[in-house]
């Protein structure tokens, strides 16, 4: 649905070139919620602005729903007619909502419809429908200044959906909201994704957002996408940075040479088997559980457990093989630096 190829953006400030995007390739499938996560300054904001060409990439292409936007005419300040029409099919929500304070909630939602050129009657009907969809039908006559942050973002979402877009871009939509409101807005995005088949590309600095709504994710650092894929695949990959950040198990104390620390990741039905006690009984070893967490990610139950076995790695080859046989993913941690060996 959204494809960027070799996307590069260079800012020129005071004679110095700053590389904000470094040949980014991104593939967002139709109907999925795709999250881009990274610290501030990683280039994720530039990336999402390049998708609807609010910023012109220095090189590379952006294709949304089969239309190569980068091929359409226009400068960064002024878009050509074709690009403007393409943008009408891409909704966008913002961190600071960007609602017009001089207009009521209803008029804010009608704004994109005015730009499309819909007549008054249809605009009203459509706006009422959308406000109902986001649960704000009773606030139609209020001004944004009278609403809470969460309500404002709901209006922002309703407005973004006015043009019946296939794609919704979310630029840190929940970063200005409290945790509870964040949850309800994310739930709304998820519902819209499922009800309307909307493809959502969101950027965020919060792993929790990725955890609760995304099907796929990409990690950005220094203008580059360092990792991307479906969450379920990433979790099955012991080396995934995203998977590790989704499951912070914390520090696990001082390492000892005659100990082996394993990280066991299980998905779906695997936790139904009492593998820890099976292991202990079968091999007569004492297992020390250092940390564990179970979460629902992308609608699937996923768990991770960190356990300590006596003896060095070579002593434990057989138990590890046993665990792998059970369909569990096992990574042996190198105690000296805390990463999977």
């Amino acid at each position: 649905m959204i494809t960027t190829k070799d996307l590069t953006k260079v800012y020129r400030s005071r004679g110095r070139d700053v590389l904000a995007l470094d040949s980014v390739d991104l593939h967002v499938q139709e109907g999925e919620v795709f999250g881009v996560v990274g610290t501030s300054g990683a280039g994720k904001s530039t990336l999402i602005r390049c998708v609807n060409l609010l910023e012109r990439p220095t090189s590379g292409t952006v294709t949304v729903d089969g239309v190569e936007l980068t091929a359409l005419s226009g400068s960064e300040q002024r878009a050509g007619r074709e690009l403007r029409e393409a943008r009408r099919r891409i909704g966008m929500v913002f961190q600071h909502f960007n609602l017009l304070s001089s207009r009521t909630v209803q008029q804010n939602v009608e704004l994109p419809l005015e730009i499309i050129g819909l007549d008054r009657h249809d605009r009203r009907r459509k706006a009422a429908e959308l406000l109902d969809l986001v649960g704000l039908a009773d606030k139609a006559g209020s001004y944004p200044g009278q609403l809470s942050g969460g309500q404002k973002q709901r209006v922002g979402i309703a407005r973004a959906l006015a043009g019946d877009p296939k794609v919704l871009l979310s630029d840190e939509a929940t970063s200005a909201l409290d945790p509870e409101t964040t949850r309800s807005i994310l739930q709304l995005l998820r519902d819209l994704n499922q009800q309307l088949g909307l493809t959502v590309l969101l950027i965020t600095h919060e792993m929790d957002v990725i955890k609760s709504v995304c099907d796929s994710a990409a990690l950005m650092r220094g203008g580059k996408v360092v990792e991307s894929g479906r969450l379920t695949d990433l979790l099955a990959d012991g080396h995934s940075r995203i998977a590790r950040d989704l499951f912070p198990l914390g520090d696990f104390g001082s390492g000892q040479a005659d100990r082996t620390v394993l990280e066991i990741t299980f998905q779906g039905d695997a936790p139904a088997q009492p593998f820890v006690s099976q292991l202990a009984r079968t091999y007569q070893i004492d297992i020390n559980i250092l940390g564990a967490a179970v979460e629902t990610i992308a609608g699937r139950l996923v768990g991770r457990m960190r356990v300590e076995l006596p003896g060095s790695h070579t002593d434990n080859v057989v138990p590890i093989g046993y665990l792998r046989q059970q369909g569990l993913q096992v990574d042996v941690l190198d105690l000296s630096n805390g990463v999977a060996a």
Binding site: N52, L54, R78, A79, R84, E85, A86, R87, R88, I90, M92, F94, H96, N98, L100, L111, P112, E114, I115, I116, R159, G163, L169
Partner: peptide, 18 residues
């Protein structure tokens, strides 16, 4: 006027006049 509003309008496909 907040630059974000102008950006929002651009994202809606509005031209300079609008």
């Amino acid at each position: 006027v907040d630059g974000g509003l102008i950006e929002a309008l651009k994202a809606m496909g509005a031209g300079t006049g609008a």
